[in-house]
Write a protein that binds this DNA or RNA. Structure first.
Lengths: 239, 239
DNA sequence: CCAAAAGTGTTGGATGTACACCCATGA
DNA sequence: TCATGGGTGTACATCCAACACTTTTGG
């Protein structure tokens, strides 16, 4: 009767490299789907939950210290998503700062999302979900911290947002929005100008390195009476 | 070595009944956790994905026609979440309109979230996640359609939002926000006043009965140039 | 005519985009 | 001093919460 059900975890690890958003994948040597590119992951172990598992599996491909953010995307469970066996996957989004260059195994490479080679199983859908989630959260959380170096100029940060969002972003307004929300703070230092000259750029850092919702409810917020209780509700849709 | 992994689906089905947000649960007759209250659900079948499965399982407890919205919350996978066996759960949020009164099996009851009896396993955490998701999406989507009757007055809708959000909501502003976003439209009809008199209330309906994000990116939106391409990006965090 | 409930008008604040303008540096 | 990149100031639009005021009913 019931086929045994396996459970795997898969991570779309994203990083902005050379100005483009890229995803980490390894090339399958054996069937099924040999030759196609596969997201890092593996079977859920007996003594771990999916979050622990994805971190353990990722550690086999990259230095976990370089992965600044991991969050669950959802379950992929079509009965035919993997041939022959019944394998349910929990998908994750992982982020690596743009200045990291983690060592990866020889079968593993970064690929621009815009030109993804043929992927195994339903991994392309997972990558698409990861991209959507990243775009959304860049807009209403401080998630940028996970893509940026510890210190950066506003134009460098702008370039990261452009690569991740896929549309032009004004450096002027990016700075204003993020500082008003206290997502960014100046370090006090400045970066030397490039060879073409120009005013030295101030350096900034993210004030916080854990995910925070910075744009609370757009509407239907609780009345602004006396200072409301601790831990105001925020638009935390996905933890 | 590896224990066989089972996969179950569980649904926190929410409805506003008698002015309070309630969740559907059934009382376990047998161990483990006998006597405690459990969310509807069951094991994933061989030929279905988790979305199909949760609908199938829900159909055993309520008329599926009454469930106006179902969405995935995430995976609960602590190794010890269920004793003895390894069982990973995909949790869902389900919504039932406030005017429905679905027949439920004798062991099944509605319970106010504010006074939840002892729950089985990690089901209380699932209910909490469902509540958070509902609160968040009421604010930036048209999800109210899934809680409201087909036609309603603004004050009735306000009461639903108050019950779901847990804080006061101004009927005046609720109407303005939702009509501006074209989430609501007047039916043209009016409801008769109550016994105490008062002006008859206009009846409204939701223009759409599928989830739509109505409050697009708060910030970092693409430049408003020429009319942008089709299907503008929106803050779809969870499909 | 009064109370009750519903709906409209209006104000003020917060937030964001766009754009003009000023600043600091290297050649 | 000029080109270049960086940063600030300001105008304008949008959106929303709050609240005063008007409308329509039943007693």
């Amino acid at each position: 009767m019931a086929r045994p059900t396996e459970h795997e975890v898969l991570a779309a690890v994203l990083q902005i490299r050379c100005g483009s958003l890229q995803v980490l994948a390894w090339q399958r040597a054996l069937p099924p789907d040999s030759g196609r590119w596969s997201l890092p992951g593996g079977l859920l172990g007996d003594d771990e939950d999916v979050e622990q598992s994805v971190r353990r599996q990722l550690a086999e491909k990259v230095d976990l210290g370089e992965v600044t953010h991991v969050e669950q995307l959802g379950v992929f469970s079509r009965p035919d998503r993997v041939p022959d066996v019944r394998r349910v996957a929990t998908a994750f989004l992982g982020l690596v700062p743009s200045d990291a260059d983690p060592a990866v195994p020889p079968d593993t490479q970064w690929h621009p999302l815009a030109a993804l080679p043929p992927t195994a199983f339903d991994h392309a859908a997972i990558v698409a979900d990861a991209h959507d989630r990243l775009r959304a959260k860049l807009s209403y959380t401080n998630l940028g911290f996970a893509l940026a170096p510890r210190e950066f100029t506003i134009s460098a940060l702008r370039d990261l947002y452009v690569a991740a969002l896929g549309h032009p972003v004004s450096a002027t307004n990016l700075q204003r929005v993020l500082t008003r929300r206290q997502v960014l703070e100046p370090t006090g230092a400045v970066a030397p100008p490039g060879p073409a000259g120009g005013r030295p750029a101030a350096l900034f850092r993210f004030t916080d390195h854990v995910l925070r919702v910075t744009d609370a409810f757009a509407v239907l917020r609780p009345p602004t009476g006396p200072p409301s209780g601790p831990g105001e509700a925020t638009r935390v849709v996905v933890p």
